[in-house]
């Protein structure tokens, strides 16, 4: 979600930064412990991979297109810490080098899309995989990954007028409340989720067939 700077109150993005930096540092430390010398090279190629996955767009009805995030696929294949770190890195570079999405919305995106998206999809996959077919589990995992992100971003935007307004109850940052943000963001993502879901399932199947899995 490319929310430009100026719509989110510091009382939201500063704590978000603190939590996000904490989680990123923790993930890098634990990955280094596990992967050792391969950490930096792997994270960098996977960030580039994540960048490409985010460039993939599916044309949908009416000449518009939906782009995927690839978060679920990365998370299922590599685990959520790697996925969280790589996707966050790309969101950061997009914010500072490519001018897409602001520096104040970065921690929100990083937490909503990269962290919760990765964790939700990895857990969904693991749980569903016990009693469903792999590609069906991958589908739901992909669907959920972007829906949880859309929901969280909608909440962050929707609480802005509640936490920051002037004496006359005029908004100071993002102007619309939860009723509007939830319906504007969550409803389209229910459908966009299908695309992410189908993509995750197909890509997972192809990767598996070609044995392009890092750990076994």
């Amino acid at each position: 979600m490319h929310v430009p700077d100026g719509f989110i109150a510091p009382s939201v993005y500063i704590p978000a930064y603190i939590v996000d930096i904490g989680l990123l540092t923790y993930s890098l430390k634990s990955l280094k412990y596990k992967l050792n010398e391969d950490t930096l090279p792997l994270l960098s190629v996977l960030s580039a991979l994540s960048f490409i996955l985010m460039s993939i767009t599916f044309p949908v009805l009416g000449g518009t297109s939906v782009h995927i995030t690839g978060v679920a696929l990365l998370s299922i294949v590599f685990g959520y810490w790697i996925s969280f770190f790589s996707v966050s890195l790309i969101l950061f570079l997009q914010a500072v080098l490519f001018g897409e999405g602001g520096i104040t919305s970065f921690p929100i995106n990083s937490l909503a899309i990269a962290f919760f998206g990765s964790i939700a999809s990895a857990i969904t996959f693991k749980v569903l995989n016990r009693f469903l077919k792999e590609d069906i589990s991958a589908f739901f995992s992909g669907w959920l990954s972007i829906n949880i992100s859309a929901f969280l971003i909608a909440v962050v935007l929707g609480i802005q007028p509640i936490i920051a307004h002037d004496d006359n109850c005029n908004p100071l940052y993002f102007p619309f409340g939860l009723n509007i943000t939830l319906s504007a963001l969550v409803i389209p993502h229910i459908f966009a989720g299908f695309i992410e879901g189908f993509y995750t399932a197909i890509a997972y199947k192809i990767l598996k067939k070609k044995r392009l899995f890092p750990y076994g």
Partner: peptide
């Protein structure tokens, strides 16, 4: 068709990523 095409494109980039990660690792060493 798009799913198939993008699925295979993804595989191409995954493959490239594994190869590059190994190469970078060796080069850094």
């Amino acid at each position: 068709d798009y799913l198939q095409i993008y699925g295979h494109l993804t595989a191409l980039f995954f493959e490239k990523s594994f190869k590059n990660a190994k190469e970078i690792s060796l080069a850094m060493k």
